[in-house]
Amino acid sequence: MGVTKEDVESAIAAALSPSHLVVTDTSGGCGASYEIEVVSEKFEGKRLLERHRLVNTALAPHMAEIHAVSIKKALTPAQAQPQPEPAADKPQA
């Protein structure tokens, strides 16, 4: 039922060929809420808004069944290198 973590992962992987991808199901199991971290070369030269649009577009076929997507990180490989960040607070859906 609904969208699985694997669905989300494969949709993003197919669209963005990410070098790093973490999808976390934050729905508590119903598959309606995800947190996403992506590192992709395709983000190069793009503003955050445009990066999120790329992710949104990749997920568009699933969005009807997903209630909430939180894109925690959308970085280029270069940006992903230097700064290890503490986990951000999680807003819930």
Partner: peptide
Amino acid sequence: EFVGGSDIILNM
């Protein structure tokens, strides 16, 4: 101008 959603506003 459209800025984005909560993730983007928090990030900014």
